[in-house]
Design a protein around this nucleic acid. Structure first.
Lengths: 111, 111
DNA sequence: AGCTTTGCTACACTAAATGTAGTGAAAGAT
DNA sequence: ATCTTTCACTACATTTAGTGTAGCAAAGCT
């Protein structure tokens, strides 16, 4: 399966705008979770599988291949790891961790 | 369909950690695209449908309901709009726009 | 009254993800 | 050397998510 390539139509957009290709890529199940996990250091297929709990090996394998094609992940001797591009992306995703907690708290209080 | 609720098991994670609920929510097709579009100002159902090009009304309707439940979107007189929470989220997503362009450029150059 | 726009719903079809099982290769123990 | 584990997947049947086309009721305009 092809990964969402900027400049080409992607799932959800014919325009091929980079941001839409990125949203398509990150929007696939567990893509952000994988990046989140690898930000803590390289991990094996099994480690990712365990971390992701409910991911099927089929999907994990697809997702890894897509992230490699997108140059966000590489295979190293210690397992899969973020590339420099992947690290950059993680740095932008990072604030979401803290924010998500506040969001969760707020939802809880005002339900 | 339920929206990913922090504290409960979500698609892709049984832990219910807020970040995972958020990733599940944003990871559904077009969720980030909708937020991205609404950041420019309120929009009607039809406007969103046009912007999203390939979204089906079925999915758009589901996504809107989920985002409303998650307190990121509300219905106003001028159409659907981001809540304050939604705006906050957008501000964190915003840098991705610029970054996506560089990423696309880089992919193009080194293929 | 008739025409348009809006915000949907219905439904059949396709694509994506899951869950369980199993396979081939490499490393470690006996 | 063979036996067992561990690892990185692949196969495949089932379930869930998303698409695409059609259409409908309510509101606004003329």
């Amino acid at each position: 399966m092809a990964f969402p390539t900027p400049g080409k139509p992607v799932r959800g957009s014919r325009s091929g705008q980079p941001i839409m290709a990125l949203f398509d890529l990150l929007g696939r199940s567990w893509a952000m979770g994988i990046i989140w996990h690898l930000s803590a250091g390289p991990g094996t297929f099994r480690a990712l599988q365990e971390y992701c709990e409910t991911i099927s090996p089929t999907t994990l394998n697809k997702r890894i291949k897509e992230l490699i094609q997108a140059r966000m992940v590489t295979k190293t001797l210690e397992g899969y790891a973020l590339t420099e591009t992947g690290e950059e992306l993680f740095k932008m995703l990072f604030p979401l961790g803290k924010w998500a907690k506040d969001w969760a708290q707020n939802l809880k209080e005002n339900k």
